[in-house]
Amino acid sequence: MNKLLSANFTRLKKDVFLKLCIIFMFAIGALLPVLDYHVMITYEFPRYIDESFFSYTSFMVILFSAFCSLFIGTEYSDGTIRNKLIVGHKRMDIYLSNLTACIIAGVIMCIAYLIPYLLTGIPLLGFFIVDNISTIWIFLGCNLVLLIALAAIFTLVSMLNQNKALSAVICILGLFVLLMLGAMIEDGLNQPEYFEDYAYMDPETKELVIEPSTANPYYIRGTQRQIYEFLSDFLPGSQIIRLSAMDAPSPEILAMYSGIIAVATTSLGIFFFGKEDIK
């Protein structure tokens, strides 16, 4: 396993796409606080460093899906996975070493964003305003577990599909499907139960009309709401949206579900990869 990890890390160092991702993340990390500062100065609207600190998650995962599928897919397109199997490496070791390399690449992308964000953000916007700084650490930890879960999903797709282009398409499209599903669920859950009462002047009668509060027909109730809430906690697409906005009262539940996804997909992936006929 160490030999495979050593070989994979060398590949990571030389990976042009990873370098481009790092540059992109670095640039975004440096730019976002500047934009926030610009908004704060121009519109005299208070902005805080907390607000965009985790916003990297939503666009980092898109790059990450492409990276994982291309990094692992190259093993199939160049045929080099055969070199590992022929010399007797276990399939499980090959799978786990590729997963580990993808996770490391994801962490590097995150760090590439966070460091410039803090370096430019703290001088411009000030320090975090959360009551307890441990909240930031908890959300960072949850983001890491989510990244591991996504790496596990992308590794599963890429290791079981010997066509690099198809893997990339499945990973990227799959991620967008998850994100859209997450957005729909969050939209459903954020619907207000009632439309508040409001008053307006009738232009014809010139009288003040008071409309009473009415129930929102799109508000989700009962079992359906419980299902939506579970999916919101469980699905990576929802987690991406919620964690990037720091909108999770119990982030540890999200991390637990991500952990379950990571373990389940990796176990399945190792099982099926062990039976796969490699061409």
Partner: peptide, 29 residues
């Protein structure tokens, strides 16, 4: 299997690496 070397169908090489880098990668494996 460690005593075997094989070229199955097409050569298994990283196309974005030089010959020396490819061999180093296999040495690491």
């Amino acid at each position: 299997r460690r005593r075997i070397g094989a070229v199955v169908e097409t050569p298994s090489i990283y196309l974005n690496m030089t010959a020396e880098e490819n061999l180093k990668e296999q040495y690491r494996i």
